[in-house]
C-alpha cells in the first residue's frame, strides 16, 4: 500500500486515529509551540536592547543623585574640582569636551569630505576599494593606540615644531595671541583635537561616500552635459542633493569625538582648568572619568564622576539621535 500522503488522510476518515495522523498532529503542535517560544524569545531580546539603554540611564541618574543633591545645578557652572575639600564642578571638563570636539570637526569635516569626493568622483575604479578600506582601517585601530602614538610621536613633534611657530607667528595678533599663548607643552587641547580629528575622519568619510553614491547618475550627467566642471558638479549637485546625509555623518563623527576616551586621556594633560590658550593642558569629561574613577575616595567624588558620565551620555545621545534622524530621513527619500 505504500506510505500515506496528506491527501489520503483527508479523504480516508478512518485514518483519523491512526498513529500517522496522531504523529502529524503532534508534530504540528510542537511546531506551533516552538514557533511561539522562539518568537517570544526574539521579542524579549529586542526589548532587552531598550532595557539596556534604560538601565544605563537609570544607573547613571541614580549614581549621580548625591552629587546633584550636594551641588545642585551649580555643578554644571562651576569650575572648581577639589577632591580634598570635596567641591566639584563640571564646567572645565564640559568646556574641554566641547572645544576639543569642535576643533576636531573643524579639521575632520573638510578632509573627510575631500576624501569622500576623491573616492566617488576622482579615484580610478580599481583603487576605490583598497583606498576606501585603508581609510576605514583608521577606524579599526583601537583608541589606545592613537593615545600612545599621540603621546610619544605626535606630541613631541608638535612641541618642537608646530607650537613655537604658532606662538611666534601670532604673538602680535590680538585674538590669536591668546589662543596660541604660553609655553609649548606638546600635550594639550590642540594636540588632543588633532588626534580626535584623525580618529573621526573615517566615520565622516565612509558615510559621506555612501550618501554621495546615492546621487542618481542622471543628475550628474545632466550637469556635466551643460558644461560643468567636476568641482561644480560636486558643489552644486552632489552636496546639495546629499546635504542631510552629510550632516548626519558629520554629527555621527561628532558623537564619536565627544565620547572618545583613551586617546584624549593620553594627550590632553588632565588639568582641571579652563585656559584661553589652546596649547595649554585641559581635560575632557571622559578623560576625567578614566583618570580619576578608580582613585576616587568618598561618595561625593564618585558620584560627581558619574554625574559627568551622565552629562556626557546626555550630550552624545542628543547628537547621535539627531544624526540618526537625519540619515533616516535621507533613506526614506531614497526609497
Amino acid at each position: 500500500m505504500g506510505t500515506k500522503k496528506v491527501a489520503d488522510f483527508a479523504i480516508d476518515t478512518g485514518a483519523l486515529d491512526s498513529t500517522e495522523a496522531l504523529d502529524r498532529r503532534a508534530t504540528l503542535r510542537r511546531f506551533k509551540v516552538l514557533d511561539t517560544v522562539f518568537r517570544l524569545l526574539t521579542m524579549t531580546a529586542a526589548s532587552a536592547v531598550l532595557v539596556l539603554l534604560g538601565g544605563v540611564i537609570a544607573s547613571l541618574v541614580i549614581g549621580s543623585l548625591p552629587a546633584f543633591r550636594a551641588f545642585g545645578l551649580d555643578f554644571l557652572t562651576t569650575q572648581s574640582w577639589n577632591p580634598v575639600t570635596e567641591k566639584f564642578g563640571a564646567l572645565a571638563p564640559i568646556y574641554g569636551t566641547v572645544v576639543t570636539s569642535a576643533l576636531a570637526m573643524l579639521l575632520a569635516v573638510p578632509v573627510g569630505l575631500g576624501i569622500a569626493i576623491f573616492l566617488t568622483e576622482l579615484c580610478p575604479y580599481p583603487l576605490r576599494r583598497p583606498i576606501g578600506i585603508a581609510i576605514e582601517l583608521l577606524a579599526g585601530i583601537p583608541s589606545i593606540i592613537y593615545g600612545i602614538w599621540g603621546l610619544f610621536v605626535l606630541a613631541p613633534l608638535i612641541q618642537q615644531y608646530v607650537q613655537p611657530g604658532l606662538i611666534g607667528t601670532f604673538s602680535n595678533v590680538p585674538v590669536l595671541s591668546t589662543l596660541f599663548a604660553g609655553p609649548p607643552y606638546g600635550i594639550g587641547v590642540l594636540t588632543a583635537s588633532f588626534i580626535l580629528a584623525i580618529m573621526v575622519l573615517p566615520f565622516i568619510t565612509s558615510i559621506s561616500r555612501d550618501v554621495f553614491d546615492t546621487v542618481p547618475s542622471v543628475l550628474k550627467e545632466a550637469a556635466y552635459g551643460v558644461g560643468c566642471t567636476t568641482w561644480e558638479v560636486v558643489r552644486s549637485v552632489v552636496i546639495p542633493y546629499t546635504r542631510v546625509g552629510v550632516i548626519g555623518g558629520v554629527m555621527l563623527g561628532l558623537g564619536r569625538a565627544l565620547g572618545e576616551t583613551m586617546a584624549v586621556t593620553f594627550v590632553i594633560g588632565n588639568a582641571h582648568k579652563i585656559s584661553a590658550s589652546l596649547l595649554a593642558p585641559g581635560t575632557t569629561i571622559s578623560a576625567t572619568i578614566a583618570n580619576e574613577f578608580t582613585e576616587a575616595v568618598g561618595d561625593i567624588y564618585t558620584s560627581s564622576l558619574i554625574a559627568l558620565g551622565l552629562i556626557l551620555f546626555g550630550i552624545t545621545f542628543v547628537i547621535l539621535a539627531l544624526a540618526r534622524y537625519m540619515l533616516m530621513r535621507l533613506e526614506q527619500k531614497a526609497a
Partner: peptide, 28 residues
Amino acid sequence: KLAAVVRFINDILLSAPSIVVGLFIYEV
C-alpha cells in the same frame, strides 16, 4: 513599531561612549 524603536536606539548605542558602559557596569 518595536523594531523601528529598537533599530533607532541600537544605532545610538552603537556609537555611545564606551566609558559610560564602564560606569554602568560599575554601578550594577
